[in-house]
């Protein structure tokens, strides 16, 4: 219950945990997956691409759509909606390419919402979040009246993508 713990702490503690992460300097990219507004530190975002068809990887778990070709580099595409347990993605409007664990992962999102300076983000305590596993949420934020969750990439992608040797 990471989120629970996080959200019952005083606000300065949440900030302290943010400050520990170098990645959090700068800005956050906000994007929508289903009805959920999500965020990732802009430093982990490599680029945004239009959707493309993936080549299936037999045996890989369902959120993994397969491999896509990004200018000659092979990148694993993960369906954000399935990943967050929200059923198969519908719109699939954008691929957010994230640098994670020394590799690049494409996350299929419905649309990119905004790129906001971290300084303008308000981190607020909320008692509960409906329909999302708190373990995959690193923090909850609010910007310009909109609430969003900062995704915990390790918790989300770790179980899917082994950190073993490449083949």
């Amino acid at each position: 219950m990471i989120l629970g713990c996080l959200l019952t702490q005083p606000r300065w503690l949440i900030f302290a945990s943010f400050n520990k992460m170098d990645d959090f300097s700068g800005r956050l990219l906000l994007f929508r997956i289903g009805d959920l507004a999500c965020a990732a530190p802009a430093t982990t975002v490599r680029e945004i691409l239009p959707p493309q068809r993936a080549t299936r990887i037999p045996g890989a778990p369902p959120p993994v759509e397969g491999l896509i070709n990004v200018r000659g580099e092979l990148v694993t595409l993960v369906d954000g909606a399935r990943l967050l347990g929200r059923g198969p993605g519908v719109d699939g409007g954008a691929l957010v390419l994230l640098e994670w664990a020394a590799t690049t992962v494409a996350l299929a999102a419905d649309e990119v919402l905004d790129l906001v300076p971290l300084g303008s983000v308000e981190l607020e305590a909320r008692e509960e979040l409906v329909g999302i596993d708190p373990g995959v949420v690193q923090a909850v934020g609010r910007h310009a009246g909109r609430s969003f969750v900062v995704l915990a990439l390790d918790a989300l992608l770790g179980p899917l993508l082994t950190v073993q040797e490449d083949v």
């Binding site: 990887i57 037999p58 045996g59 890989a60 778990p61 490449d166 083949v167």
Partner: peptide, 27 residues
């Protein structure tokens, strides 16, 4: 031949991947 990081559960029958002339990745 290009390497790729196989997601957990990937069948152990692939030695890499490649990109075909039409741009599609192929295992």
């Amino acid at each position: 031949v290009k390497s790729f990081r196989p997601p957990r559960g990937t069948l152990p029958i692939f030695s890499g991947a490649t990109v075909l002339g039409d741009g599609d990745p192929v295992l």
